[in-house]
């Protein structure tokens, strides 16, 4: 029978590093995908996952409620991602206008046209390029909106749970998701990348 996160946390705190391995193994994929979508770049995501795991390891003793481990590690992952984005400064942040100018629109249009002509949505190449485009589009959102949408869309957190993780009112979370999705929709429409029925 597999051990619960709570049990594993207790064992890690007793010095069992293998328990930490098992614990992180459960959440590693989720952390990676969360961070990848937050920062939009694979090369950064790798490093930031490591940093997150290190922070988790070092601060595990500060976790007051072991049952809240999943929320806690996502909070750390969010902070790590946010710190990284801040340290990047504005030069890497992508604005909607940035996405449009300097031929980016043309490049993306060509990709989209290619998908529509030749690719089926279930093809790996389509998914990879779709991910790349969505990563760029997500970067146009504020970090707050992006966090809320990613947690809601990809990690199954309810608005109430997101509110708990981020320590903000539920209404704020829903507002961020609402405005984030609308902003994202505008960007994607400008890229003519809309969901095909």
């Amino acid at each position: 029978m597999s051990r619960t996160d709570e049990v594993l946390v207790a064992q890690v705190l007793e010095g069992d590093r293998c328990a930490f391995n098992e614990l992180i193994g459960r959440w590693e994929k989720g952390l990676y995908n969360f961070i990848l979508r937050m920062v939009g770049r694979e090369e950064d995501a790798n490093d930031l996952v490591q940093e997150t795991i290190l922070r988790v390891y070092r601060r595990l003793g500060q976790l007051r409620e072991p049952s809240a481990f999943p929320s806690w590690i996502f909070r750390i992952a969010r902070n790590v991602s946010r710190d990284s984005l801040r340290s990047r400064g504005n030069r890497v942040m992508v604005s909607a206008d940035d996405l449009m100018e300097k031929g980016a629109e043309q490049i993306l249009d060509e990709r989209i046209d290619r998908f529509q002509r030749t690719a089926q949505p279930d093809q790996a190449a389509y998914r990879a390029e779709l991910g790349e485009i969505l990563a760029k589009a997500l970067q146009t959102l504020s970090e707050e909106q992006r966090t809320a949408i990613i947690m809601r869309e990809y990690h199954g957190y309810s608005s109430a749970e997101i509110a708990q993780v981020l320590d903000i009112p539920v209404g704020t979370v829903r507002s961020r998701i609402f405005h984030g999705l609308r902003n994202l929709g505008r960007i994607l429409r400008r890229l003519r990348l809309e969901e095909r029925e």
Partner: peptide, 8 residues
Amino acid sequence: LLRRWEDV
């Protein structure tokens, strides 16, 4: 559309 971006 977001949902189509699967986890890797």
